[in-house]
Amino acid sequence: MKQDFMTAFSGADGRLESVLTDEGETFQILEDASGLRTNADASVRIVANYETSVAGDGRVSGVKLYALLQTISPLPLTAGEFEGGVKTEPSEIRSIWLGYDYLNVVLEVKQQGKHLFHFVEDGVSIDEDSGRAKVRLTLYHDVSSDVQDYGKRAYLSVPLKQYMTEGVQGVDVYFSIYTYSDSFKTYVLDETGLHVEGN
């Protein structure tokens, strides 16, 4: 059994029918034990426990979904679009990587209470020589309590497809979070891999 970030697609009745992996492969859903229902003919970003079924010729014939949850995947907004201002409560990144049209993040938080996440678009620029877009983002994180006593994971998936405009060959992401060290840390994901700036 595997656990991965994927994009799932529903049919006319809202049932999930297929998935697109972050390797760019599309599979039919042969069985969905999760029972998730969504809007008709929609796509939804998920983290799923699943297994593949292999046909007699050795090819994958489809997948069986077990437990899954929807990731937090809103389109980034500029700072001025947040009515109450940008909130940056602390958190820590357990893992971060570029997927298929998404930036995937597994986040750990310590506070009790309700957590609200979003993504702040700090700036976008395009290098015409390389054809790459540089996207600067900050994690929006608001918490309804200041009690810190346990660890909890959150699964985020930042949409990036909207930055692949005409002439853009790739996206370099600068993703900043406020940490428990009372400082910002920036995760840079570009052609050369992952780099971290800050403490």
Rank of each mutant, 00 (worst) to 15 (best):
94 R>F: 07
116 L>A: 15
92 E>D: 11
177 I>F: 04
129 D>G: 10
73 S>T: 14
9 F>G: 11
25 E>A: 13
155 Y>M: 14
117 F>C: 11
134 K>E: 12
98 L>G: 08
131 G>P: 07
71 T>D: 04
179 T>Q: 03
98 L>M: 12
129 D>A: 10
144 S>F: 11
3 Q>F: 12
48 A>H: 10
100 Y>K: 11
47 V>L: 14
148 Q>A: 14
27 F>S: 02
102 Y>V: 07
35 G>R: 05
147 V>I: 15
12 A>P: 10
168 V>K: 04
27 F>G: 05
184 F>S: 02
152 K>Y: 12
166 E>D: 10
59 R>L: 09
85 G>L: 04
31 E>G: 06
138 T>Q: 08
12 A>H: 06
35 G>N: 04
141 H>G: 02
139 L>G: 00
183 S>W: 09
153 R>V: 12
57 D>S: 01
29 I>G: 03
15 R>P: 09
12 A>M: 06
183 S>V: 09
167 G>E: 07
11 G>R: 06
10 S>K: 13
188 V>H: 13
87 K>I: 07
179 T>K: 00
133 A>I: 01
119 F>R: 03
43 S>K: 11
180 Y>L: 06
195 H>R: 14
99 G>W: 06
138 T>W: 01
137 L>I: 04
61 S>K: 00
59 R>W: 08
122 D>F: 01
191 E>K: 09
112 Q>W: 14
195 H>L: 07
94 R>D: 10
163 Y>S: 05
53 S>V: 07
33 A>G: 08
55 A>M: 01
47 V>W: 15
54 V>I: 05
179 T>E: 08
140 Y>Q: 06
175 F>D: 03
126 I>C: 12
135 V>W: 00
35 G>L: 14
145 S>K: 13
23 E>I: 02
115 H>L: 05
154 A>G: 10
177 I>H: 02
134 K>R: 13
54 V>D: 02
119 F>E: 03
106 V>I: 13
113 G>R: 10
110 K>I: 08
6 M>V: 11
101 D>Q: 09
21 T>D: 09
181 S>Y: 13
62 G>C: 01
60 V>R: 03
107 L>C: 07
186 T>W: 03
36 L>W: 15
42 A>N: 12
22 D>I: 06
9 F>H: 12
109 V>P: 01
131 G>N: 05
49 N>P: 02
137 L>S: 00
113 G>K: 05
182 D>I: 07
104 N>V: 08
183 S>R: 13
131 G>L: 02
161 K>I: 10
12 A>D: 13
11 G>W: 08
63 V>R: 02
145 S>G: 02
44 V>F: 11
143 V>K: 07
196 V>M: 02
182 D>W: 14
127 D>N: 13
196 V>I: 15
